[in-house]
Simulated scan of single mutants.
Amino acid sequence: MHVIGAGGHSKVIVDILLESHIQINGVWDENPDLKVFMGYPVRGNFDAFKKVKTDKVIIAIGSNLIRKRISGEIPENTAVAIHPKSAISKYSSIGIGTVIMPNATINAGSIIGVYVIVNTNSSVDHDCNLGDFVHISPQAALGGNVTVGEGTHIGIGASVIQGIKIGKWATIGAGSVVIRDVPDYAVVVGNPGRIIKYNKLT
């Protein structure tokens, strides 16, 4: 497996791969001064990686926008990284490139898009639908039948009640409690959650 990215998020993914007994062939990062990462050689930047013929790659980058950009330049049939201590229903669906951290839970009927992050101790209840490039942060909890649009970030410890629809590229702040639908690009904070501004994608 090749790992793209050598930051904090990548440390967790490398650990998942090791716990899953998946061999790591090298790490790729834009920092030219970084030669070794967690005991594995940093073999070059992303442009150098694109010259390697392999379909065994995981994007280990936390930024949803950067993950989306890189995903268009790597093999389509990329890997998933699922920690063996996560709990995933066999009646759920997990898209390519997705990473699922330790103690995360995904319940029956949920559909997880491509290149999604379901982070440590987060909970995705039954029949949720997470769009591509979503990030569910540690300790966040989604009730049943929640829809989250492409690229949205649900912050640490946020709670979303059942049946809520959250638009694309929105941000739900840490600890927020979402009890109403959220439009595209909205930034929501507080309990109950309220919109304070809108994201501008560049």
Score class of each variant (00 low, 15 high):
residue 165 K to R: 14
residue 95 G to I: 03
residue 152 T to D: 06
residue 134 V to N: 07
residue 147 T to H: 13
residue 140 A to T: 08
residue 151 G to H: 10
residue 181 D to Y: 07
residue 44 G to C: 09
residue 119 N to G: 10
residue 59 I to G: 08
residue 154 I to V: 15
residue 33 D to T: 13
residue 108 A to K: 12
residue 114 V to S: 15
residue 36 V to K: 13
residue 50 K to W: 00
residue 56 K to F: 00
residue 192 P to C: 10
residue 22 I to W: 00
residue 5 G to D: 02
residue 112 I to A: 04
residue 95 G to A: 08
residue 67 R to L: 01
residue 14 V to E: 06
residue 66 I to W: 00
residue 92 S to A: 15
residue 59 I to C: 06
residue 85 K to W: 03
residue 73 E to W: 00
residue 91 Y to S: 11
residue 141 A to H: 10
residue 31 N to G: 05
residue 117 I to K: 02
residue 111 I to C: 08
residue 130 L to K: 03
residue 163 G to E: 11
residue 60 A to V: 06
residue 199 N to L: 02
residue 117 I to W: 07
residue 145 N to F: 11
residue 169 W to N: 13
residue 190 G to M: 11
residue 120 T to E: 08
residue 99 V to E: 01
residue 67 R to V: 04
residue 161 I to T: 07
residue 140 A to C: 09
residue 52 V to C: 09
residue 185 Y to H: 14
residue 90 K to D: 14
residue 190 G to H: 11
residue 8 G to K: 13
residue 48 A to V: 01
residue 1 M to P: 12
residue 34 L to W: 03
residue 142 L to V: 02
residue 88 I to E: 04
residue 6 A to E: 05
residue 185 Y to S: 04
residue 30 E to Q: 14
residue 18 L to I: 15
residue 123 S to F: 08
residue 124 V to G: 04
residue 157 G to M: 11
residue 133 F to G: 10
residue 202 T to P: 03
residue 147 T to V: 14
residue 145 N to L: 11
residue 144 G to W: 03
residue 60 A to N: 10
residue 196 I to L: 05
residue 32 P to S: 11
residue 199 N to G: 05
residue 101 M to N: 07
residue 182 V to N: 02
